[in-house]
Design a protein around this nucleic acid. Structure first.
Length: 137
DNA sequence: GCCAACGTTGGC
DNA sequence: GCCAACGTTGGC
C-alpha cells in the first residue's frame, strides 16, 4: 500500500472541513501540475496519506484515505487533469510541524523538504512510520 | 510582504 | 525547440 501527502492551505480547504465531509469524503480538485497528476493516477483505493496544512500551520494534521481512484476533474476547463476522492481517517494527536520534520535527519529527503511546491507527493514507508510516530500515532 | 523556486506560456 | 517573461506557490 502506497503512502502520500496532500497539501492544502487551510484558508481554502482545511482539515476541519475534511473531517466535516465525513465518510462520503470529497473530491481533491484543483491539481494542475503534471507530476502531481502522475501521483494522483498512481493512487489506489485504500491508500492513505498525510493531510498537510501549508502557509498557516505548516504541519501534518491528519490522515486521509483514497476512496475513489483517479477520474476527470470537472473544475479543469482544459479537461487534462483529474482527481481522487479522499475521506478523513483520523487526526494526528500531535500535529507534526514542518520544523519538526526538518529537525529529523531521516526525513531530510522527504519531497516536502526537497520540492516544497509540489502539492501531491509520495511518502516512503519509512517516512510514513516516522511522521506517524512523531504525531503520536 | 518579500522572494526563491519552479511551471507554463508564447514569440521567434 | 528554445528561452524570456510571467504567474503561482509557499516558506520566511
Amino acid at each position: 500500500m502506497a503512502h502520500w501527502l496532500f497539501k492544502s492551505e487551510p484558508s481554502s480547504w482545511s482539515w476541519d472541513e475534511q473531517v466535516a465531509a465525513g465518510e462520503a469524503g470529497t473530491a481533491w480538485t484543483g491539481v494542475r501540475n503534471h507530476l502531481a497528476r502522475k501521483h494522483l493516477q498512481a493512487m489506489r483505493l485504500g491508500d492513505q496519506g498525510f493531510f498537510y496544512h501549508s502557509n498557516e500551520g505548516k504541519a501534518v494534521v491528519g490522515i486521509v484515505e483514497v476512496i475513489r481512484e483517479y477520474y476527470p476533474d470537472h473544475t479543469d476547463p482544459t479537461g487534462r487533469f483529474g482527481m481522487v476522492d479522499l475521506k478523513a481517517v483520523e487526526p494526528m494527536p500531535e500535529p507534526v510541524t514542518l520544523e519538526a520534520i526538518k529537525a529529523q535527519p531521516e526525513l531530510a529527503d522527504m519531497v516536502l523538504i526537497r520540492n516544497s511546491r509540489l502539492s501531491v507527493q509520495p511518502v516512503t514507508d519509512e517516512e510514513w512510520r516516522i511522521v506517524r510516530r512523531l504525531g503520536g500515532l
